[in-house]
Amino acid sequence: MYSTFIGLNKTVVLSGEQSLWDGLKRGNVQSLEALYTQYNELLYNYGKKFTTDIHLVQDAIQETFISLWKYRTSISADKGFNYYLLKSFRNQLLRLIKERANTTYTDENLEFSFEVGFDKQLIAGEEYALLSKQVKDALGQLTARQREIIYFRFFEGLSFEEIAGIMNMQVRATYKLTSRALAALKEIMSILLILKII
């Protein structure tokens, strides 16, 4: 009844999600609905980083699931369902954004921004405000693609291989971009702090 997949972290994964994908392949609409219920929040929150237009994000989610249904028999999700849906959704959303912009649009002039929070029990009041601002400024200095990588790596916990695949880039390029992004982030942070201290 349970799949016996053992991941790197030695957890046993129950059949839930695999059975949804199996159901989808057999043409079960309820499986698609369950996948939608499960992934709507993840995709929506990721999509909102690119644009403030929620209708655009909702449309992209809708397109993603309609095409998931359309191509259900030929889909291979061997790199993980999470990965498959994020990649497919990213392509749909960027296509819609491009159409909307009605110009030649490249990944270079994409937006990607998010707000970081901390547990207020550990850090409060003025210190919280200060730290939030520092992180915000530091992120603001990065390019959109760099912020997207940081989002995936630190907040969604994806591997560099997955990030590269989703963002349509070579793995080596992700490493480079991330190391550069991280180096830049650190550099900016220390400059800001030095300026404050002096």
Partner: peptide, 29 residues
């Protein structure tokens, strides 16, 4: 302390509307 705080770092999230009906309309068998 930094490690404890970093572990709580999160990206602010929103709860999206459920719009399954719109998808279902498109794929209805």
């Amino acid at each position: 302390r930094a490690a404890a705080i970093a572990r709580t770092m999160y990206v602010v999230k929103e709860k999206p509307a459920m719009l399954w009906e719109n998808i279902y309309k498109e794929i209805k068998p």
